[in-house]
Amino acid sequence: MTVTDATTSTAPHAPSASSRRAARGFAPVTPALALVVFVFVLPVLALLLRSVLEPQPGLQNYEAFFASTTYLKVLGNTFLVAGTVTVVTVLLGFPVAWFLAIAPGFWSRLLFAIVILSMWTNLLARTYAWMVLLQRTGIINRTLIDLGLISGPLPLINNLVGVTIGMTYIMLPFMILPLHATIRSIDPTVFQAAALCGASRWQAFTRVMLPLTASGIAAGALMVFVMSLGYFITPALLGGTSNMMLAELIAQLVQSLLDWGLAGAAALILLTITLAIYLVQLRFFGFGQARS
């Protein structure tokens, strides 16, 4: 939509003063709109178009993608890592969010500050830390060998194990913070009611707490899953060349293979999955949950 579209589309209906007022306030939006159209919408559409135009018009890029075991393995790796990261962040993030919501002031403030510091620390700095920790002669391997738990170093880096550990680290705050808000919004009297009705702690947890936090868990899980699907830096540094994820594949198709058609196809596949998950989120949890 452009400025002229907006004016011409309203003008024929009612050129009176009231319609001019009805379309007021559009002018200040135009710089942002121009930027987003020219530096976002058009370039992305152009890339996606190349997937059906290069090297010749047709769907051959998509056929090539889904016929190749290599590319399907990349897609599988992407879902495997994103899925594992999501499950682990829910399992670790829920108790931490719970602790943050109810622990005595000092301890919850301290842990909260650690979560925020970790989230805001430069992504490359955090990934560097994990490269140091996970390498063959790294602290984790040396400690395990010194303790006599293993005889040789475990392969913790340049594979999906390393990627999963590093991504879980990066995604945890994105699970903890929304869950913390959800748990804090629970009315404590519902648990008094549960206790009065004779519920055990376990029953109160499964029948009251989980249902009340289910939408928060789902919203956090979808967000972490979607962010993990498209991640590039951490897989590129902690992963190996034989176990790529989708974002790395797109980058490599462009940088080393110059195969823009296939890169466009892979980009469209990634975008479609991402948008589909966001639509599910909007449909079932609404804007409010997605924002909180």
Binding site: M1, V36, A247, A263, L270, L271, T274
Partner: peptide
């Protein structure tokens, strides 16, 4: 503003934040 499509425009402005950045980069 009182023009139509404000919510859609707002969603469009926020989209670069949620889309995988590697797609925008390429």
């Amino acid at each position: 503003g009182t023009f139509r499509g404000r919510e859609a425009l707002r969603a469009l402005f926020l989209t670069p934040m949620i889309l995988p950045v590697v797609v925008l980069a390429v």
